[in-house]
Computed example of a mutant assay.
Amino acid sequence: MLFTITTLVKIVPIVTLPTHWFHWRFLTLRYWPIWLGLGLMQIMAVLPFRWQLAIGGQAGRWISRIARRRRRIAAINLALCFPELTATQRAALLENHFAALGIGLFETAMAWWAPDKKLRGLARIEGAENLQQAMDRGKGVILLTGHFTTLELGARFITWQQPFHAMYRSHKNLLYEAVMRRERERRSRLPPLAHENLRGLLRAFRQGRAVWYAPDQNHGIRNSVFVPFFGVPTCTLTATTRLATLSGAAVVPYFPRRLAGNAGYEIAILPALDHFPSGDVVADTRRINELLEHHIRQAPEQYLWVHRRFKTRPPDSPRIYPL
């Protein structure tokens, strides 16, 4: 059947917010671009998958031309993490990364608004029994992953196996924050928890629930240690060890990956980490970084290289990123 604009208009819902989250300020001019973007995302969510890949890839390459600062950050990160590649190979990886970022916009739209019927045929989940075994312990689970371009869609696939709380940091734009919370909670079936809400996190674990967590962003030296990440001393959060120690929750890593062509996605759920926490917070944090690095290398273009991962440096070390 021909996919027409008329069909698109009929099936795309109007962007709405629950009334208890809505505020009249969301109708002011400053929020109009966000409303427009959200409307476009709902259109993006219903496009055929092959269109999403093609348009998203081209959009990402276009974004790389105008987002020069982020492109430079990503180029620096790739040079640090893949010194074994030639300059030509890293340039190709950089282009593929921005294509993955563009596709990630469509993946976020699908995660929030695509029906399960559309997504079921795209995902292959391996190791679901590992998550179930960890949940059966009754002490809760830390769903450990990293900041991949497939982050939102990968989490959507996990909700088919297990409801979870998402540990997150608030977005500065209030309208986007409201929509993001709404859609994440609607799909995960449990409310998100702020990363600083330790009491709420421990309560969730006592109730035997799962909490999604990605510890691989730079939030400063507080509650962090320097351990290698792709051979670079990297300021890395120790919250995974802290939460596991306080709660007794199992740490179950999972990693989403978009497959080549139109083959869809693979979500690998690994067994719960054994002997974790070990009593050595530095060794535990290094272990997590090594695990992340191993899975990033399987599809390096799909990791979030535009983040200033190495912003915080060891004492007396030179700055890596330009001001």
Rank of each mutant, 00 (worst) to 15 (best):
Y254R: 08
K118Y: 10
F255S: 05
I5C: 12
T234Q: 07
L17M: 08
H171S: 10
Q217S: 09
R25D: 09
R124Y: 11
A268W: 13
H219V: 06
H295P: 00
R209T: 00
E290P: 00
G154K: 06
E107H: 04
K117M: 07
E185W: 06
R257K: 15
R308F: 11
V12T: 15
R120K: 13
D216F: 07
P83I: 03
E107G: 02
A260Y: 09
T16W: 14
E107P: 01
I267R: 10
R25E: 11
L323M: 07
L8T: 01
D280E: 05
A134D: 02
L292P: 00
W35M: 04
L174N: 11
I34K: 09
P228F: 03
R187W: 15
A54P: 00
G200I: 02
M110P: 04
G60H: 07
W113G: 00
K10V: 00
R65A: 11
W160E: 13
F164H: 06
T285Y: 10
R137W: 08
P314E: 02
W21E: 12
L291I: 04
Q132P: 00
V282G: 02
I288L: 13
G200S: 05
R286S: 05
N223D: 15
R287K: 09
K118L: 14
L323I: 01
W112L: 01
H295R: 05
T240W: 11
H147L: 09
W51Q: 10
R169S: 13
I267Q: 10
R186K: 14
L47E: 05
T28Q: 13
D316H: 14
Q298G: 00
M41A: 14
A194K: 12
P256L: 07
V227R: 04
E183Q: 15
R257P: 07
W212P: 01
A250N: 04
Q132T: 05
W113M: 00
R70Q: 15
E290A: 13
V306D: 11
R69H: 14
F82N: 09
L119Q: 07
A283D: 08
